[in-house]
């Protein structure tokens, strides 16, 4: 009773000049302040201030889209840390992988990265399944479903490019099989249908040294150049495209009327 007028530490902190300069709405207590807390934050205003009731039910959304985004962030952070130790060369790659588990304290960074990647493929699939099961791809969300399919493809491609980096048996043979599919690409792969039509006289334009597989591998065989190319694609190329598409995906959720729901 005697403390009635005494303000708690948290309350006083919430009224301090520093706090108010960062979060202008103060401690979110009133309805207005709570809405301000969302609208005034650069990160949280990804959300609208108010959403339909069913949108907060785990049974409706399974939280899978959010977890996929969260995993993308986890993978970015852990991946960045792995880059401190890993050198993408045939000579060092394999030993660096062993070193980062054994010579670095709390060496589960690679585990977090690898299992996180597997988990992300799974969460993305489950998110896709949920969106299909609730019919949420229907107008006006057709375009965003398409963006989502591309994001799913990119997730799998990110995972695939990461597979080569440890430079172990699993890595090179998965990449060998994977890139040999590119060899069979119609017209631009040298063992694909139609490639032999692209010729001037006797000179084939599309051969083992000029087809799409060569561009992927940086050579005719999986080797030094392939490791570097997949490393760059894995760390910069594909994540960059993914981030752009993610921005579009999130933006369009809001623009298409927020989360889907029955009318």
């Amino acid at each position: 009773m005697e403390n009635k007028n005494k303000k708690s530490f948290l309350e006083r902190m919430g009224e301090s000049q520093v706090w108010k300069s960062i979060i202008r709405s103060g401690v979110p207590r009133s309805r207005r302040q709570r809405m301000q807390a969302i609208l005034g934050s650069v990160f949280l205003h990804l959300h609208p201030a108010r959403i339909p009731k069913h949108a907060v039910k785990i049974g409706y959304t399974w939280c899978m889209g959010g977890l996929s985004f969260f995993l993308f962030i986890v993978l970015t952070i852990t991946g960045l840390l792995l880059m401190f130790y890993y050198r993408p060369t045939v000579e060092y790659a394999y030993t660096d992988i062993i070193d980062m588990a054994e010579q670095v304290p709390l060496g589960i960074m690679r585990e977090l990265h690898r299992w996180g990647a597997h988990a992300m493929v799974l969460t993305v699939w489950l998110h896709m399944l949920r969106v299909f099961m609730t019919g949420s791809y229907k107008p006006p969300r057709e375009f965003n479903w398409g963006v989502g399919v591309l994001l799913m493809t990119l997730t799998m491609f990110l995972s695939f490019t990461g597979y080569l980096l440890p430079w172990d048996q699993l890595a090179i043979w998965a990449i060998t099989v994977g890139t040999n599919m590119a060899r069979a690409h119609p017209f631009i792969g040298h063992e694909g249908p139609g490639a032999s039509l692209l010729a001037i006289g006797d000179i084939n334009l599309v051969h083992a040294g000029s087809d799409v597989r060569f561009a992927l591998l940086g050579g005719r065989f999986v080797g030094e150049a392939s490791l570097l190319r997949f490393y760059v694609l894995h760390c910069i190329g594909v994540p960059f495209i993914t981030m752009i598409l993610m921005a579009v995906h999130f933006w369009r959720i809001r623009k298409d009327g927020g989360i889907s729901g029955p009318l």
Binding site: G209, S210, F214, A215, G218, G219, R220, F221, G223
Partner: peptide, 12 residues
């Protein structure tokens, strides 16, 4: 860009 992907010399 495309041509840049195909080096002239390979170290094989």
């Amino acid at each position: 860009i495309v041509r840049f992907l195909f080096p002239n010399v390979l170290f094989e």
